[in-house]
Design a protein around this nucleic acid. Structure first.
Lengths: 229, 229
DNA sequence: TCAAAAGTGTTGAACATACACCCATGT
DNA sequence: ACATGGGTGTATGTTCAACACTTTTGA
């Protein structure tokens, strides 16, 4: 290689977002060790010697959520490497963004014992390291991606009603959308969602069609704007 | 820290894109040393011990383009860390995307002596490491960003005509746009571009107004679609 | 006078917003 | 019966695509 190349530790940090009780929530842990002991932080861990980055992210994701296999959306968010960001030394953090349906609270006994879902608004000023910046970038990314990709389904369970999907947009963007126009837009966009042929009354009122995320690629996704309509 | 944490080398790789002679081009170097000696690669280098990631990217950018201070757009693209991607050992590459106006070819004498602008279509199958993947991701990113951000100006010189700006979209997307509708859309969007008060005839024909990139943030950027209009 | 490029006007189609209205269920 | 949410119809306004047409230069 070259002379005296600096060697650094590489970590993955996870921003796992979900919508619960009409609030955008992130999974955070309570740090059991120094530094920042007792403070909240994003889940994460170090990348092993022969491990790919996404592989490390999926491993941590499984450990933190208690799920053997994570079904949902996972994407790389960005890499944070300011020299002073970790008091233990030079640590490069590759952040990943995961979007999950409303998972049960992680159970005790696993590594995730100290993990909990917290509304993102309650996290301001409480996170260790530069994790507040990472979280903020993650929320920006999620908001932006809803606008021009059919990603909202990643926040939903296997099958969902149009109203449940709409609530995802409303919570993430913090706006109210017209239920009727939203319904039309989503169902009339080829490949966005596909009906599953069943109905549910779990939202109350008249039974609603159940849908799942569209299987085929959406050729020209509609621009979902956080407007009023 | 912890026991036996793997330490890795961290590099930055640069995808520097520009539009020259109606072609989308990237700056590539010819590797002078092993591995992949003689082959083309993206410019890049290792991150120093006390250096931030973007700082390293800007340093390399200056060295490769021969510019003291790079004026243009620079953003983090993604991080590539597959265990086998560098035959010398575990190297994590943080890729950055730079968009530049049509710069002069880097001069000999600098580190950039071996650097040259190459149309991206000519690069298929010629790049070292996983740089073809990185380049492909960079082009995808640039294409997507033109659609929903006012970023095209980063490809232009200080002042430019609407037709020159349009040619950026046409080259990056590989489509023809209607000059008249494009003109209307761009000039009627508040903050997208601002007139500089001068005219030029460098494109031939009737003199065109010169513009510069809008100073204020564009509140609601228009969706520029690679359609026909 | 002609070619070339800038820029404006106009028109029909597509789409978005707002909202009236009906449907199907639980209580 | 009535409240609740699902879903359709429709009017109005805005934006978009297409293109006719005028303006201003260089050759």
């Amino acid at each position: 290689m070259d002379v005296a190349l600096p060697k650094m530790t590489v970590a993955v940090d996870l921003v796992i977002l979900t919508v619960r009780q009409d609030l955008l929530c992130a999974l955070v842990i309570n740090r059991a060790i120094e530094p920042f002991k007792g403070q909240r932080a994003l889940p994460g861990g170090f990348v092993l010697d022969d491990e790919d980055l996404e592989e490390a992210a999926r491993r941590e994701l499984g450990e933190e959520t208690g799920l053997v296999e994570f079904r949902g959306h996972l994407e790389q968010l960005g890499t944070y490497g300011a020299p002073g960001r970790d008091p233990r030394g030079r640590v490069i953090a590759v952040a990943y963004l995961a979007l999950a349906p409303d998972l049960p609270t992680p159970e005790a006994g696993s590594d995730a014992a100290a993990a909990e879902w917290v509304p993102v608004e309650s996290l301001a000023g409480t996170l260790a390291f530069d994790h507040e910046q990472i979280l903020s970038d993650a929320i920006d990314r999620a908001r932006a991606k809803l606008e021009y990709t059919p990603l909202a389904g990643a926040f939903c369970t296997d099958t969902f009603t149009i109203a449940e999907l709409r609530r995802v947009y409303e919570v993430v963007w913090g706006v109210a959308l017209d239920p009727r126009n939203f319904h039309r837009k989503v169902t009339s966009t080829e490949g966005f969602v596909e009906p599953v042929g069943e109905r549910t009354t779990r939202d109350g009122g008249r039974p609603a069609q159940l849908y799942r995320v569209g299987g085929a690629e959406v050729l020209q996704p509609p621009v979902m704007r956080p407007g009023v309509g």
